[in-house]
């Protein structure tokens, strides 16, 4: 049985994708009991059993997807100590660092803890791993993300623009004020070009864990003038129930045939759909034993990356690569 904590947008998409992949039993839990029951009712049928239950019932499952707002580290620790595998959809930097620190506990319990199973981090790492085959060696990865999933994700986006960004730069962590470093990033259609800025996002931390060979990792998020201006204030208006079409853009730089080479790949879809599809694929991967024990990130060398990428594509997420023109 697979458990899902959180019956918001991402949790709902996780359940949807698990059912689509043939998972027979799913347990859903949320602080909002009505929301959990609604999800259970919507996806239960004669062949699939989706049950809404209390959080303590999660200890009886094989793997739990944490699709609730951060922090996840405390819940993950309890689950791992009880011998339950964990997939976390957290994209908060501090929470991600705390989750990666649970490596020893996960190994001791012989369980897998998948950290950052979302769009960014998550799909970004998977795309970097996929692009690696086109290079002799890679040394830079630059990620840009546009859009948010549900209200909690929007609040996280708002907070991220008010803090300090973190980036991996030539063997050291580089901290810069969030909202700085404007860069025009071209996302796949229908999103198109967006001004993106530094923000406190977890991708460099996760990428550095999964790809130690990278010397530079940056992540930027799209934001409007209003986002940047009001970042340090409480959210002036309540966030939308679901953001519009989001997008992810991954640029990898490295060496091929003794010369510098750049590859750009991306995807445009609803952020909750991307996150839910990837988290569901990770949960299935943990159940089937695809992940080794310990704290794992999507895209690292010991993860079932091809199977996860195929699951994401099968979920209807269209990958697009940027084909530019030669400067000569």
């Amino acid at each position: 049985m697979i458990g899902v904590i959180g019956a918001g947008l991402v949790g709902t998409r996780v359940v949807e994708q698990l059912i689509a992949a043939g998972q027979v039993q799913v347990l859903v839990s949320d602080t909002n009991v009505v929301a959990a029951k609604r999800v259970a009712q919507r996806y239960s049928d004669s062949t699939h059993q989706v049950v809404a239950g209390p959080t303590r019932a999660m200890f009886d499952t094989n793997v739990v997807v944490l699709a609730c707002p951060a922090p996840h580290a405390k819940a993950a620790r309890r689950l791992l100590e009880a011998g339950v595998g964990v997939v976390s959809c957290s994209d908060d930097v501090e929470d991600t660092l705390s989750l990666l620190d649970l490596d020893a506990i996960a190994r001791q319990s012989r369980q897998s803890l998948v950290v950052g199973a979302t769009s960014s981090p998550g799909l970004s790492g998977l795309l970097v791993r996929m692009l690696m085959s086109r290079f002799d060696s890679i040394d830079e990865a630059h990620v840009a993300v546009h859009g948010t999933a549900g209200p909690s994700c929007a609040q996280q986006h708002h907070r991220a623009l008010a803090r300090q960004s973190i980036g991996w730069h030539d063997g050291d962590w580089l901290r810069r004020p969030a909202g700085s470093g404007r860069e025009l990033c071209w996302f796949p259609d229908p999103v198109g070009p967006r001004d993106c800025y530094r923000a406190e996002l977890a991708d460099p931390v996760v990428m550095h864990h999964g790809f130690p060979e990278l010397t530079r990792v940056t992540v930027r998020v799209s934001a409007t003038r209003r986002d940047r201006l009001t970042a340090r204030l409480p959210m002036l208006t309540p966030p939308h129930a679901e953001g519009g079409i989001g997008a992810l853009r991954v640029e990898v730089r490295g060496w091929r045939n003794d010369s510098r080479h750049v590859e750009v790949i991306g995807a445009a879809d609803r952020v909750a759909h991307i996150a839910g599809s990837l988290a569901a694929a990770c949960a299935r991967g943990v159940v089937t034993g695809g992940f080794a024990s310990g704290a794992r990130v999507v895209g690292d060398s010991d993860s079932p990356n091809n199977a996860m990428l195929q699951a994401v594509v099968d979920a209807g997420i269209h990958l697009r690569e940027f084909v530019g023109t030669s400067s000569h």
Binding site: I265, V323, T325
Partner: peptide, 12 residues
């Protein structure tokens, strides 16, 4: 015309 986003399918 000369560049842009192209659909990509990962090798199975």
């Amino acid at each position: 015309k000369q560049g842009g986003w192209r659909s990509y399918s990962p090798p199975k």
